[in-house]
Nucleic acid binder design. Structure first.
Lengths: 237, 237
DNA sequence: AACTCCATGTAATGCGTTACATGATTCT
DNA sequence: AGAATCATGTAACGCATTACATGGAGTT
């Protein structure tokens, strides 16, 4: 089952799958951090990864992931060649005759790292994806490569601008042309009620997009406040 | 999330299913409108309903519905007792030896009407549902009972206010208490980076909620502009 | 004695998407 | 001649949700 074609499965890269990529991100973070005791790296097995999607955790606030789905995604990542089991610790920390299943610790492959960076570099195309997928990208971009985070924000900003322009054009066209002459045939010219509704739809999209752009502008420059406890720090520009 | 029971499939009222309710709404609209030729009511069979979710149509702009899913939903609605097949026209408009399947024209049952009104009266609880589910509710409320639409908007507005209050409280708590004494144990007190991220998450939610509230205030009072062609009409407030 | 933690999953069910089947009539 | 319209669906597939299974170790 390499090429996911099938009569119905056109699973191309269209679906972006934020959960899988969040897992890739966690694996990348784990490889950055030596366990500071000098010994081997802990974590990066399912149960430990699951904790980071828990209740008080920052990622868990944005993306909920139940254990069942998490293990499912890990298997998918493995099948895709993006990660591999590095150590099959049959005896977690000294217990040997255990009935508990062995830990499966994952490590990113080269392909997995490439995929992660590709994903981190791409802004999202729909406004509704900001609240989940973009926030997750931002989370990992900041921690793995802050200079990339700035670019991601800028590109996302550009996409929102393009969206705003398109919505504004539609909005103007609606007001300008109730039935403007119409050389051929409009595919059912909308009546007054319908135009009223379409105006409201466009207005909602416009205002939500503008709000997101506004937020992005405030997100853009400031890195975390320098590890000093002063909470003021609104710096240059 | 009303009653989710059962080991896996319980289908309670938890998922709100906007597509099904949009279909109920269309059936209700069809019953309002006598076919104006004096004869029998047309429409209200699958193929005709599907057209209203098409490309230039106002509903289609908000909620996309492919024929496959549409027929599936109609079956579900029938099983739920919300609609029944009223006429099984084997010969659509005079053609008799047809190989084409007979039209199945649906009509709302009493239970279906009750369900529709219940749904139309309930605002949505999550901001992400505004763009799809709430807009659909608004569409039908305006056309079926404008006085109800005003109440729906008001209640939705109240929910957004409550949400804003909750988010603001969380936001303040974040800034106030990095680790404020902590009598028991905080479940992993967040570090500076995590707090920075959580601030951004809350800020996005706040600004999106505020934008939605703003939009709702503009949506609220004005009915469609009186059937006069003057396009100025920015009235009170 | 009862509960939670660890650590992996599976089973059952439903939802959503896309493609395809049928076959006469009507438009281009 | 070729395409679209009408009018119903089914088939195949993948994603998401929820509950449950296992069984020893430590905690209350």
């Amino acid at each position: 089952m390499v090429s996911k074609v099938g009569p119905a499965g056109t699973t191309a890269v269209s679906a972006e799958m934020p959960a899988e990529h969040a897992l890739l991100g966690l694996l990348a973070l784990d490889e950055r951090q030596p366990p500071e005791g000098g010994g081997r790296r802990e974590g990066s097995h399912g149960y430990d990864l699951a904790r980071r999607f828990g209740d008080g955790q920052p990622l868990g606030d944005v993306l909920r992931l139940e254990p069942g789905m998490l293990y499912h995604h890990l298997k998918k990542i493995e099948r895709a060649g993006w990660a591999a089991v590095e150590a099959n610790d049959s005896a977690p920390a000294g217990r040997r005759g255990s009935s508990r299943p062995p830990r499966r610790s994952y490590r990113l492959t080269a392909a997995g790292e490439a995929e992660l960076w590709r994903w981190l570099g791409e802004p999202v195309t729909h406004t509704r994806e900001l609240r989940l997928e973009f926030l997750v990208k931002l989370y990992f971009a900041r921690r793995l490569a802050p200079e990339r985070a700035a670019r991601l924000v800028a590109e996302q900003r550009a996409i929102l601008d393009r969206l705003t322009a398109s919505l504004t054009a539609q909005r103007l066209a609606l007001d300008a042309a109730p039935a403007p002459d119409d050389g051929g045939q409009a595919p059912t010219p909308p009546d007054a009620d319908d135009r009223h509704f379409l105006r409201q739809v466009l207005d909602l999209r416009l205002i939500q997009t503008a709000a997101a752009a506004n937020w992005l502008d405030r997100v853009a420059p400031s890195p975390p406040p320098m590890a000093v406890d002063s909470a003021s720090g609104s710096d240059s520009r």
